[in-house]
Design a protein around this nucleic acid. Structure first.
Lengths: 204, 204, 204, 204
DNA sequence: AATGAATGAGACTTCATTCAT
DNA sequence: TATGAATGAAGTCTCATTCAT
C-alpha cells in the first residue's frame, strides 16, 4: 500500500471514529460518549482507538473543533448591502441561526463546554469583546453604519451588539433544546425575534 | 409511632436525600450525582434509597422540580402598576434574572435537561404556550394591556411574549456560563437588553 | 444476623481478600497483585473488593502492615542484661533474624516496596532515624550504654547503629534469597556476622 | 549492502532498543518497560522489535546480562597495594558500591531475579564459595594477606569474606531502596560501615 | 527491514441495582 | 425501616503480540 494511501486510510479511520462519537454526542450528549460505545458500534476492540487518538479528551476536542469550523464556514459568505445595514443584520443572523441549527448538538456542546481552550472562543459579555471576537466586531460595524445612515438610534454600539447577539442566542438555545417545533412556528419565532430587536434599535 | 409521624419522617428522609443530591449537583453537575455519593455522605447504605425513590431518575426529577419551584416562588411577588405595563415588564424580568442567578446551577440543570418529564415544564416555544405556562400568560397579559393603553404596537401577543422571554433567557444563560462578569458590566447588559426589547415593542 | 456477627463477617472477608493477595505477593511479588486475580480466585466480582477496601493501595498497605506487625510482635520480648549491652545486642539481632526468617516472603515484599507509605516505616538511613524508628532507638541506647560502661569505642552512635543494622539486614536478605542453606552453615554465618560487627565497635 | 554491514546494523539496532529499554528501566523500573514505550521513543513501530528479539523477555534478559557485565567491568581495575590489604579492601568495596549504585536498578533486578541462569552467579553464602566466585576469592586473598602481615586477626577466611561482603551488600540494598539520601549522609554511612567491619577483623 | 492496524486480555475503578436479613 | 453483601456492566487505558503489506 502506498504511503499516501496509508495516510488517507488513517485519516479515514479517525474520521470514522469521530463520526460515531458525534452520533453518540448528538443522541446522548457529550459526556455520554464512551470508547466502549464507539468501538462496539464499529465492531472494533477498545484498544485500537488509542492508535488514532491520544485519549478520549482528544476525541472530544477534535469533535468540537470540527463542529465549530463547520459552523464558522457556513456563516462566512453573506452578501453585503451597501446602504441597508438592517437587511444585512437580518440576513447574517438568519444565516447564523440556520448554520447553528444544522450542527445544533455540536453547538450546545461547544457553548457549554467549560474547557478553557474552548471557553476562550465563546465569551462575549466582557467589555472590549468587539476587539477580540470577529462576529461581534462585524455586528458593531453594521450598527455603526446604521447610525451613520441615520437609520439606527445613537447608542453604545458594543453593548447593543451584545444585546442583539444574546437575544438571538437565547432563541437558538431554546430552539435546540425544545427540538420538535413545527417549521412554520419556528419561522414565525425567528422573524418575530428579529423584528423586535431591530425595531428596538431603529430610529422612528 | 403514629401513622402521621411515620409519614412525616419519610418525607424528611426524602428531603434529606434530595438535599445531598442537590449539593452534589451544584458542585459537580447533574450527571455526577450517584446513589453511592449520596449515601456515603449521609452514612446510609445504598439500598435504603430505593425505599424512598423508585430509582435514580426519580431523585433527579424531584430535584429539578423542586429547584424550579424555588425559582418560581422567588419571582411570584412583584407589584402591579396599573397603567404602566412597561415598568411592570421590566421589573418582572429583573426579578426573574436575579432569582435565576441565585439558583444558577439548578437552573442550568433544568434548562438543559431534555427529559420529557421536565421539558413539559420548561418548553415555551410551542403555539398556545400562553395557556399552559403561567409566566408567559402573565407576560401576554401585560403586553395586551400595553396595546390597549396604546403604548405598545399591535402584534401577535404570544409570539411577542416568547420573543421577549427568549431574549432575556439568552442573556441569563450567557451570564451564568461566562460567570465572572463585573457587576457594573452586568447591570449595563441587563439594562441594554431590556431597553432594546421594550423599545422594540413600543409604539412611537 | 447480629451486629457483632456482621462485623466479624466483614472482617473475615477482608481477611480472606488479604490472604489471597498475600499468596499472590509471595508467589509473584507485590506489584503483581491485581484485583482481578484476587476476585477470580475467590469467585467474586471485581467490584466487591471496593466494599472492603478503598482501593488497591489500601489492600497492599494492609498486607504489608500486617506482616510487619507479625515480625515486630515476634521480636518484642527479649531479656535485658543490665551490664552487658554486647550480649543484649547479640540476642536482639538473633531474635530479629529468626523472626524475619519465619515471615521471609512478607519481609522481602515489605523491604522492596518503595511506596512512600511503606518506606516511611522501613527507611533507616536518614539522619535522625533514632527519633522515629523504635528499633534503631533501642540499638542506639545499647550502644550508648556500652560506651558509658567503657566497653565500646567512642563513636557517632546513630551512624553506628545504622551500620550494625544494615550489616545484619544484608545477611538476612541473602539468607532469604539463597534459600537452601544448611543449618550449620547458616549459624556459622550469623555468628561470624555478629562477631565481626561487635568486635568492630568494641574497645580493645 | 554487504552481509557484514547488515549484521552490524542489526546489532546496532538491537543495541538501540536495549539502550532505550535501559533508560526506561532506570527511570521507572524493570517491569515498567514496555514495547510501546520503547518504540515510541525510537519512532519505530511496535512490530519491528520482534524482528530483533524473540519477545519482551529476551530484551530484559539481555539488559540484565549487559548490566551485570558493566558492573563487573567497572570494578575490575582497582590498584593493588602490596602491603596494605586494608586499604585495598576499602577501595575495592568503595568501587563496588559506586559501580552498583550507578546501575542500581539493574543490580536490584539481578539480585532478585529467580531465573536460574542468573541465580547461579549471585549465590555467595554456601561453603566453598571462594572457589567459584571470583570476587569472594579476591576478598579471601586480601584477608589472608592481612593475616600473614599480622594486621588482621586469625579467622575462618571464607566466613569472614562472606560477612564483609554481606555487610556491604546490606548497605547497598538499603541505599538503593531508600533512594533519596543526601550525599553527605551517604558518604558517612559508607565510611562508618567500612570502619566497623574492618575494625572488626583487625588485630589490636 | 519495517510499518501500522488490530486484537484480546487485563489493569483499576464506579455505578445502579437487587436481595437476604 | 434499614443494612450491607454482591453482581454485572460499564468506564478508561495499557500492553504484548500478530500479521498483512
Amino acid at each position: 500500500m502506498s504511503r499516501q494511501r496509508q495516510i488517507n486510510q488513517k485519516k479515514e479511520t479517525r474520521q470514522l471514529i469521530l463520526s460515531v462519537a458525534k452520533e453518540i454526542m448528538i443522541k446522548e450528549g457529550v459526556d455520554k460518549i464512551s470508547i466502549r460505545k464507539i468501538t462496539n458500534t464499529l465492531n472494533y476492540s477498545p484498544g485500537i482507538v488509542y492508535h488514532y487518538f491520544k485519549d478520549k479528551e482528544e476525541i472530544i476536542e477534535s469533535l468540537l473543533k470540527e463542529g465549530y469550523l463547520e459552523i464558522l464556514n457556513s456563516i462566512r459568505d453573506t452578501k453585503e448591502y451597501e446602504k441597508e445595514p438592517e437587511k444585512e443584520i437580518r440576513e447574517k443572523f438568519i444565516n447564523y441561526i440556520n448554520a447553528v441549527l444544522r450542527f445544533s448538538d455540536v453547538y450546545l456542546a461547544i457553548i457549554f463546554s467549560n474547557k478553557p481552550s474552548i471557553l476562550q472562543y465563546t465569551g462575549i459579555l466582557h467589555k472590549g469583546v468587539s476587539e477580540d471576537r470577529k462576529s461581534i466586531k462585524i455586528l458593531c460595524n453594521l450598527i455603526r453604519k446604521g447610525i451613520q445612515l441615520n437609520q439606527f438610534k445613537e447608542c453604545d454600539v458594543e453593548l447593543t451588539a451584545q444585546a442583539l447577539w444574546v437575544s438571538i442566542f437565547g432563541l437558538i438555545i431554546k430552539l435546540i433544546i425544545e427540538g420538535e417545533i413545527e417549521i412554520e412556528q419556528k419561522e414565525k419565532l425567528i422573524n418575530q425575534q428579529l423584528d423586535i430587536i431591530i425595531s428596538g434599535i431603529k430610529k422612528h
